[in-house]
């Protein structure tokens, strides 16, 4: 058994915690972008007008069928060449992870809307409610509550994806872990502790999600 030096890692634990703050910020920003923009794409996909439906479908397929690391690298290294503006790494990460989340959230929203029976629309309209009112008062609450497990699942995937931003040197948790481990020659200890930090943050979300799901099916 080797001599493990977890003490070295815990001595600078506050550094990792601060880095985890950046991770959380990236996560929150990207998820907000994804969840909100996802509605636009979801409506695009549901639209009977092909000029809306086809680009929306294309967008979703592009982001779901390419690796998130390729997306990050593309937005950080390739896009600036095209538009002539160098983005800060954090901005590129929010953009890439946010658009990635948009594609996945769009599909969740869409399935949610589909899962609400057509009869609910008809019942609302039959009461003389306008389309928007039916949507916000009747359809959305049902769809969202039904989709909570899918949203939490997406939040978990997104949280894990934030670590990939270390590759384009966003100074989040994983980046600092790599830096710290190479400076102090304690990679095993560092990555074990960092895995622990991720787990402690992410696992409760998964747990809550499966509890909600179980309650729903019970």
């Amino acid at each position: 058994m080797p001599e493990l030096q977890f003490g070295v890692v815990f001595a600078d634990f506050d550094l990792l915690i601060r880095a985890a703050g950046t991770t959380a910020l990236l996560w929150a920003a990207a998820f907000s972008v994804g969840w909100s923009a996802g509605w636009i794409v979801a409506f695009g996909r549901r639209s009977p007008r092909l000029v809306l439906a086809i680009p929306a479908r294309g967008f979703v397929e592009c982001f779901r069928n390419t690796p998130v690391l390729v997306q990050l690298i593309w937005f950080y290294y390739a896009l600036p060449v095209l538009i002539g503006i160098q983005m800060p790494a954090f901005g590129a990460a929010v953009l890439a992870l946010g658009l990635n989340g948009t594609a996945y959230c769009a599909e969740i929203h869409r399935n949610g809307l589909q899962s609400v029976a057509i009869g609910q629309w008809e019942a609302g309209r039959a009461l003389g409610m306008g389309r928007l009112r039916v949507f916000f008062r009747i359809i959305l609450p049902q769809a969202v509550s039904r989709m909570i497990p899918a949203y939490t699942n997406r939040a978990v995937e997104m949280a894990k994806n934030t670590s990939v931003a270390s590759v384009i040197s966003v100074h989040e948790l994983m980046y600092n872990a790599r830096l710290f481990s190479s400076q102090n020659y304690v990679p095993l200890e560092t990555f074990t502790v960092v895995a622990g930090i991720y787990f402690v943050v992410i696992w409760p979300i998964s747990l809550a999600s499966s509890l909600i799901e179980r309650r729903r099916s019970a």
């Binding site: 080797p2 493990l4 978990v156 949280a159 894990k160 994806n161 934030t162 670590s163 990939v164 270390s166 590759v167 994983m174 872990a177 790599r178 481990s181 190479s182 020659y185 304690v186 990679p187 095993l188 200890e189 560092t190 990555f191 074990t192 960092v194 895995a195 991720y198 787990f199 992410i202 696992w203 998964s206």
Partner: peptide, 23 residues
């Protein structure tokens, strides 16, 4: 639960840099 709730990139680094250094 552990491997579903931690980022894969951490596992890559753990196996590549962590294992040789410690074991």
């Amino acid at each position: 639960e552990f491997f579903r709730n931690t980022p894969p990139l951490v596992h890559f680094f753990w196996f590549f840099y962590g294992l040789p250094m410690a074991f």
